[in-house]
Amino acid sequence: MQRRHFLKNTMATGAIALAASSGLLVPGSVLAAWNKKAFDAKDVQSALKGAIGTELTEASDKIKIKAPQIAENGAVVPITISSTLSNVKSITILSEKNGTPLIAKFNLKGKSEAFISTRIKMGKTSNIIAVCESGGKFYSARKEVKVTIGGCGG
């Protein structure tokens, strides 16, 4: 049953992706195909543009990034993003100086709280950027993490 469900979903997603690209749907409200362009982007601006459709974000102190000041091992940097902004629809995480800055985008559905905790890889000392989407606007916060051993390549 699961497999069938999955197939059906992928097909539906294809159709929706088409609709989204023709501007019928708001991107982000559907689970589109993996955003290769954004994840392959080599700089923060194009990564942001690919992930959230704009590179302009407003700095906000309502987003909290919890991350170590110094990460001994860049391959495993625990981070927690939380926000007191209301109705946060998505949380996007970037690491400024990674080869490909975009790390992940979390699309929160109705009931989810603005809280994400995960572990990321960082190539070198860099700012972590968290972008929250709230009420059609994008807010961001930064925090520097010093990395002593990089976690990309080797």
Partner: peptide
């Protein structure tokens, strides 16, 4: 009902 949909890149840890 979906509550979270995440898109990940290679920079999520092992």
């Amino acid at each position: 009902a979906p509550v979270l949909e995440a898109e990940w890149g290679v920079a999520i840890s092992k």
